[in-house]
Simulated scan of single mutants.
Amino acid sequence: MLGISMSSVEKLKREFREEKERLDEERRKVENEEEMKKKKEGELILRLRHRSSSRAERRFSPIARSVEQKIPTAREPSKAAQSGRSAISFQPPKKPFKLMNYSDGIEWLKENYIKNEETGKFYEFGEDIPELPERRMTDTINEPILFCRFPAEIKSFYMQRDPNDNHLTESVDVLVPGVGEIIGGSMRMTNFEDLSESFRKNGL
Rank of each mutant, 00 (worst) to 15 (best):
L2E: 15
G3H: 13
G3P: 03
M6F: 11
S7Q: 09
S7A: 15
R14H: 13
E15D: 09
F16V: 08
R17H: 10
E18G: 05
E19I: 06
E19S: 12
K20N: 07
E21A: 12
E25G: 08
R27I: 06
R27H: 08
R28I: 08
M36A: 09
G42P: 00
E43N: 10
L46V: 10
R49G: 06
S53D: 14
S54Y: 15
R58N: 11
R59E: 15
S61D: 14
P62D: 15
I63A: 12
R75Q: 09
A81E: 13
Q82F: 10
R85C: 05
I88V: 14
I88M: 09
Q91V: 11
P93Y: 11
K94F: 13
K98W: 11
N101K: 09
Y102P: 01
I106W: 01
L109G: 02
L109F: 03
K110I: 04
E111K: 06
Y113P: 00
Y113F: 13
I114E: 01
I114K: 00
T119E: 00
G120I: 01
G120R: 02
G126K: 01
E131Q: 09
L132K: 13
R136L: 06
D139T: 00
I145P: 00
L146M: 08
F150L: 00
A152Y: 02
I154H: 03
I154Y: 02
S156E: 14
S156F: 14
Y158H: 12
M159V: 05
Q160I: 05
R161K: 07
P163Q: 03
N166Y: 10
T169Q: 03
T169S: 02
V172K: 01
V172I: 04
V172F: 02
V174R: 01
E181W: 00
E181K: 00
E181R: 01
I183C: 07
G185N: 05
G185I: 03
S186G: 03
M187L: 13
R188V: 06
M189V: 03
D194S: 10
L195P: 00
L195W: 02
L195A: 08
S196D: 12
S196Y: 15
E197T: 09
S198T: 10
S198E: 13
F199G: 07
R200L: 10
N202E: 14
